[in-house]
């Protein structure tokens, strides 16, 4: 187990290092002066010269890279020129709102996805199963930002049932939560359904049936448990993806999280905040993957021995 832990942790660090390096390279290797790019076209010569000096742009690339790495390790991304505050502070302030949204979406997805998947498996190839499959296909293929807009139009503007945006209580989280959850619901439906159908031919299921248990009890008590194992991994990975997907949903629903900060900072060319936000989301994503890997190693010993 220790070897497995070390291996997964090293890989997580490696991925983070990769993300930092990509951000560094993209900012440096794009044609044009990075300082000019960051400050925009209205910057004065002095401001540009100052930033060039601060970023060390006149020094060789490896030296810049070393300085950049040490800045990142110290979580020092410089100040936001819009707010004149530390960029990382701005991001950490907004982070809880994004996590909150992702958690709500995950809960909705788990509830709806697993139950719909079980229903589909119980009624395999019947009308209910087909309807659930169509629902899964739709929720996976429709553009999430568009669904968000339609939800606002129908539930907030027409029916006045739920609030369309801004931060607040649970009622303001329902629409963005469902919108964010939809692709994840589709994945869970498919996973639960196929997982259940995979195990129904196993011997222990035959045994349960032979004991005379009803099909419902066989599925719910015996089959679902085993079908749930892969759902742990997928939930971890998808939770991370929700952090990324939240960027779009937060923009649609004016949700004050990191994603919205990221998009606002991009349009204001506030690149210190952009870097901090991207690396923060990436960091959260990598951390969650690491936790899932470790959990999975505990849950299923075959995984840690297999690799």
């Amino acid at each position: 187990m220790t070897a497995y832990l070390i291996r997964r942790t090293l890989f997580a660090v490696f991925v983070l290092w990769g993300a930092v390096t990509i951000v560094f390279l993209v900012l440096r290797l794009v044609p044009g002066d990075p300082a000019q790019l960051i400050l925009g076209s209205d910057a004065t010569q002095e401001e540009i010269a100052q930033l060039r000096d601060q970023m060390g742009l006149d020094r060789p690339l490896p030296v810049q890279y070393g300085k950049y790495l040490s800045d990142v390790v110290n979580l020092d991304f410089g100040d936001s020129y819009r707010y004149h505050r530390d960029a990382m502070d701005l991001v950490t302030e907004r982070f809880p709102a994004t996590v909150q949204l992702a958690v709500v979406a995950t809960v909705i997805a788990l509830l709806l996805g697993i139950s719909l998947g079980v229903v589909a498996a119980l009624r395999v190839n019947r009308l209910t199963d087909r309807l659930v499959s169509v629902f899964a296909l739709l929720s996976q293929s429709m553009p999430s930002f568009w669904i968000g807009i339609v939800f606002i139009l129908v539930f907030a503007r027409q029916l006045h049932l739920l609030a369309s945006g801004g931060k607040g209580g649970l009622d303001r989280m329902i629409l963005p939560g469902i919108t964010l959850a939809l692709p994840f619901i589709a994945i869970l439906i498919r996973l639960t359904r196929s997982g259940l159908l995979d195990v129904v031919h196993e011997n222990y299921i035959q045994t349960a049936r032979a004991k005379g248990l009803s099909e419902r009890v066989v599925i719910l008590r015996h089959a679902v448990r085993n079908a749930l194992i892969p759902i742990v991994t997928v939930t971890g990975i998808e939770f991370g993806k929700l952090l990324g997907g939240a960027v779009i949903i937060e923009t649609v629903f004016a949700w004050p999280g990191v994603g919205r900060l990221l998009i606002d900072s991009i349009s204001a060319r506030d690149y210190n905040v952009v870097q901090a936000a991207i690396l923060m989301i990436a960091g959260g994503f990598v951390l969650i993957n690491l936790v899932v890997d470790i959990l999975y190693g505990y849950l299923d010993p075959r995984i840690r021995l297999g690799r």
């Binding site: 990769g18 952090l243 990324g244 960027v247 991009i266 989301i281 990436a282 994503f285 990598v286």
Partner: peptide, 9 residues
């Protein structure tokens, strides 16, 4: 292991 939409953005 990195959300592709972030990289793209």
């Amino acid at each position: 292991t990195f959300p592709s939409i972030l990289l793209a953005i």
